[in-house]
Write a protein that binds this DNA or RNA. Structure first.
Lengths: 350, 350
DNA sequence: CGGGTATAGGAAACCGGTGTCATTATCAAG
DNA sequence: CTTGATAATGACACCGGTTTCCTATACCCG
């Protein structure tokens, strides 16, 4: 059993030397063709390109990465319960990467673990990543960004946050969007509106809460502490949080849940209690995940342009590589919009 | 402006030469330490390891990949509407990859496009992937597997398929699981049971349909063509397909939908028609996605161990690398189970 | 027609590891 | 005390590209 190293597969691996030999030029010339060097004879270029096309030669990216000192891998770091969001984000990023030589390497992490930092550091340094996109809530971790800076790893953070650093941030205006949603409820006549907040420490949770409070304050509606329940962005937490709101007298006539999962929990809880939606209770969620259209009634919600934001994040990242001087002009702030479905109606008169 | 190559970032990149110099040994010896070569003096090893630990040296994977002729990237190829499934699969694979030097590169493709093959081929050859995991329905594409073979790219296909080739396949027994589900309906007294089938050409769709027919045949129940409606594995298709079933007289008292999305569509359609579930209509889905517990009533469904299957697939792939001689002993066949929730009840007597 | 200047292209070093083989040190056996 | 076997280590080529430096040729001008 002789080791057959060279002709392992039917697609014997071609090297730049083979191409050079076939074309009758030096490997340097082939390299110039590949990298589109402008100081090449037209004929020479055509000849080499023809051979490359015929043979189906593909430069070895490992060798390229080694020689160039950087590779073409973008990392996606996240720790997020929202599967739909993560997947949409992946899609957006991949759209931007399509046609480039970049690939996407994903890295879910466990925020709870106290090894997250080491884990991520090992990830970026070992793979010498070109850059990473960080999804919320990991993106709110400033220590992480410092570490990435130290490692010389580019990054873009996604989030519902202030634009302290537009170059490294793609954000949505959650606060204003939530305020809009709540204004909608108020316009329908609601005055006792409950909030199911997101987890403490999440910037998105704070932004959404502030938007909620802002709209109420504008309308001169006071917000007793009892109308605010804490949630964890999960269906179950929405379910249990809403029960404490239902126990209030008078009961709130509308509830804004800080994400769709919790909104679905509210709807489920209402069903268990025999509270009719939207007749006796209006509900608005946030994210516009598919679940909003699967339940009955379909949930009104706030949609943020996840795919577009993912695309923008990736373009920001690789833009710095492609056009050295070219300014990256991707927008950093995206607007969310209220999607009206069937879960909102005027309150019953009491 | 002198170029400062060496001390670019705070984490100046160490090379194997630096370690060798610091340890007073040759780079080859350092390499031996890294690769746990057994023919090393204990003292030498300890000394080098100490230095590696102190300095935080990490071998450059690009260089390793180049020298070794293969890199440590696993690709995930999919074209699937089921976000939850894809994400669970990612999770399973990553669990298996955790602690190894492998990373996961994802590649959603567009099955419709006639460039899929070129796209994937470019992906695996350019990146010289170690191997790929292919999700259904892409995994049913035999031409793709031939191409991967030609490219010398390892692969494992996931699916609900016959085990023609256990080494390259991780499968679930959809047929038997569906038969179980339908037997459950029959045991409850149902006789007119509708099927919403998956798209033509999907092996999973065929398997599930065969399971359905099998259970009916066992019970001696005939299946008129009108009780079978075609679906596309989407919510909307489930919605419209179920309407044709609802128009039948007599109406089916139970419906098996070939996945949860379509089952949710059936439930939604029933709500629109004022058909009470489960009193007037029983529903069973397939996949056990989160939506099944968000809707009311929660849907009975068939659960297949996605995460475990993803883990097994990844282990099969990298197992061949880690233990050369060691047989990979991951199971190739996984069992699905019926999850009973609230969408099934005995039929009303007519 | 000669000298200066682009410009194409080659030789060799390099990126940071790994493989092969030779060399040296150590030890048991004869 | 010599010899052969064995363990530990090092020298050097190599993986497949890129980059630097240099030379040879073509072209331009006075």
């Amino acid at each position: 059993m002789a080791k057959q190293k060279q002709d392992e597969g039917p697609a014997a691996k071609l090297t730049i030397n083979d191409i050079a030999r076939l074309a009758g030029v030096s490997k340097k010339t082939v390299s110039r063709v590949i990298n589109r060097s402008p100081l090449l004879n037209r004929e020479t270029r055509d000849k080499v390109e023809a051979i490359i096309r015929e043979t189906g030669y593909v430069p070895n990216p490992q060798a390229r990465a080694l020689a160039l000192g950087r590779n073409f891998l973008i990392g996606l770091i996240y720790d997020n319960p929202n599967a739909q969001m993560v997947l949409s984000m992946q899609r957006g990023i991949l759209e931007a990467l399509h046609g480039t030589e970049f690939e996407l390497v994903i890295r879910p992490v466990d925020r709870g673990s106290n090894q997250v930092m080491e884990d991520i550091q090992g990830f970026v340094t070992r793979q010498r990543l070109f850059g990473v996109v960080v999804l919320p809530p990991m993106s709110e971790n400033d220590a992480l960004m410092r570490m990435l800076d130290e490692q010389g790893c580019r990054y873009v953070r996604m989030g519902s946050a202030i634009l302290d650093d537009p170059e490294h941030m793609v954000a949505s205006n959650d606060r204003e969007a939530v305020a809009d949603a709540v204004r909608h409820l108020i316009a329908q006549g609601h005055r006792r509106i409950g909030l199911i907040a997101g987890p403490h420490g999440f910037r998105s949770a704070r932004e959404r809460r502030e938007g909620f409070e802002m709209a109420l304050a504008e309308a001169g509606i006071s917000l007793p502490r009892s109308l605010v329940a804490d949630g964890q962005y999960t269906f179950e937490s929405g379910l249990s949080a809403s029960e404490s709101l239902f126990d209030l007298t008078p009961r709130p006539t509308a509830i804004f849940a800080s994400n769709d999962e919790m909104a679905a929990g509210v709807l489920y809880a209402a069903r268990l209690r025999g509270i009719a939606v939207p007749e006796q209770l209006s509900i608005i969620g946030f994210d516009d995940t598919p679940v909003t259209t699967r339940v009955w009634p379909p949930l009104s919600t706030v949609r943020w342009p996840i795919v577009a934001m993912g695309r923008a994040a990736a373009l920001k990242l690789i833009g710095t590589a492609i056009g050295e001087g070219a300014e990256v002009n991707e927008p950093s702030m995206f607007s969310s919009t209220l999607i009206r479905r069937g879960s909102v109606a005027p309150p019953v008169q009491t």
